[in-house]
Every structure is written in structure tokens, then in C-alpha cells.
Simulated scan of single mutants.
Amino acid sequence: MVNGKVVSIPSFHCRINDVIEIKPKSTSQTVIKNNIENKRFGDIPTHLKFDESKLSGTVTNYCDRNELLLELDELLVIEYYSRK
């Protein structure tokens, strides 16, 4: 959920100060609680603020390119979509 509304679009663009959370009766809450207990996730990115008590995150800033864990050549993506 984003800002209290269900979002079903995987590529949804969040804005600064958007609150991202899980539906209250969702089975995903169990998965997230287990990940928090086992520390299976890495460091929380600097552009997000996570509230463990509410299991929600807030977008505080735009993502910095250096924080992405993907090796991505943006020019190849642009080239691919420009052919269509």
C-alpha cells in the first residue's frame, strides 16, 4: 500500500514523503517480521526511513545512482526502447 491505498502496479513511481506499508491482514507481514528478526535484508537505503513498529517505510529523498545494487548500462536500455 502507498499512502493508505492499494497499489497493484509493480512499476509504481513513489514520490518524496510517500508512506509504503503492507495491508494489515496480509500474509506478507509474517515474511517481513521474519526478515527483521533474522536480519536477512541489507542496510536500509539512505533515501528510505523504516519504522519497525508499524512495518512501514517513508521515502525521504530521491535514490542515488551509486546506491543501486544493479550493474546497469542506461544507454543500452534507451537504445533498446528507442527502436520500438
Rank of each mutant, 00 (worst) to 15 (best):
M1C: 04
M1T: 02
V2L: 00
V2I: 14
N3F: 04
N3S: 09
G4F: 04
K5Q: 11
K5R: 14
K5W: 01
V7M: 05
V7C: 06
V7K: 06
V7P: 00
S8Q: 02
S8L: 09
S8Y: 11
S8C: 11
I9N: 05
I9L: 13
S11H: 05
S11Y: 06
F12G: 00
F12K: 02
H13M: 11
H13T: 08
C14L: 13
C14Q: 01
R15M: 10
R15E: 12
I16C: 12
N17Q: 13
D18Y: 01
V19R: 01
V19Q: 04
I20V: 11
E21I: 02
E21L: 05
E21V: 03
I22H: 01
K23Q: 11
P24D: 06
P24V: 00
K25W: 02
K25P: 00
T27R: 10
S28V: 11
S28D: 11
Q29R: 14
Q29K: 15
Q29H: 07
T30E: 05
T30F: 14
T30N: 04
V31M: 03
K33A: 14
K33R: 12
K33N: 03
N34I: 08
N34H: 11
N34Q: 13
N34M: 10
N35F: 07
N35S: 09
I36M: 14
E37N: 15
N38W: 00
K39H: 13
K39A: 07
R40L: 08
R40K: 09
R40D: 08
R40E: 05
F41V: 00
G42S: 10
G42P: 07
D43H: 14
D43T: 14
D43P: 12
I44R: 10
I44H: 07
P45Q: 08
P45K: 12
P45F: 10
T46M: 03
L48T: 00
L48I: 04
L48K: 02
K49Q: 05
F50I: 05
F50G: 01
D51G: 07
S53A: 14
S53P: 08
L55I: 06
L55Y: 01
S56A: 12
G57A: 15
G57N: 02
G57K: 02
T58R: 01
T58L: 02
T60E: 11
T60N: 08
T60R: 14
T60M: 15
N61W: 03
Y62F: 15
Y62E: 05
Y62D: 03
Y62C: 09
C63E: 13
C63H: 14
C63Q: 14
C63P: 13
D64Y: 04
D64K: 14
D64S: 14
R65H: 11
R65L: 15
R65P: 11
N66R: 06
N66V: 10
L68D: 04
L68R: 11
L68C: 14
L68Q: 05
L69S: 09
L69C: 11
L69R: 13
L70K: 07
E71H: 12
L72W: 13
D73T: 03
D73H: 07
D73V: 06
D73L: 06
E74P: 05
E74S: 12
E74Q: 09
L75M: 05
L76M: 11
V77F: 08
V77M: 02
I78H: 05
I78P: 01
I78E: 07
I78T: 12
Y80E: 06
Y80V: 07
Y80T: 05
Y80N: 03
Y81R: 08
S82P: 00
R83A: 15
R83M: 15
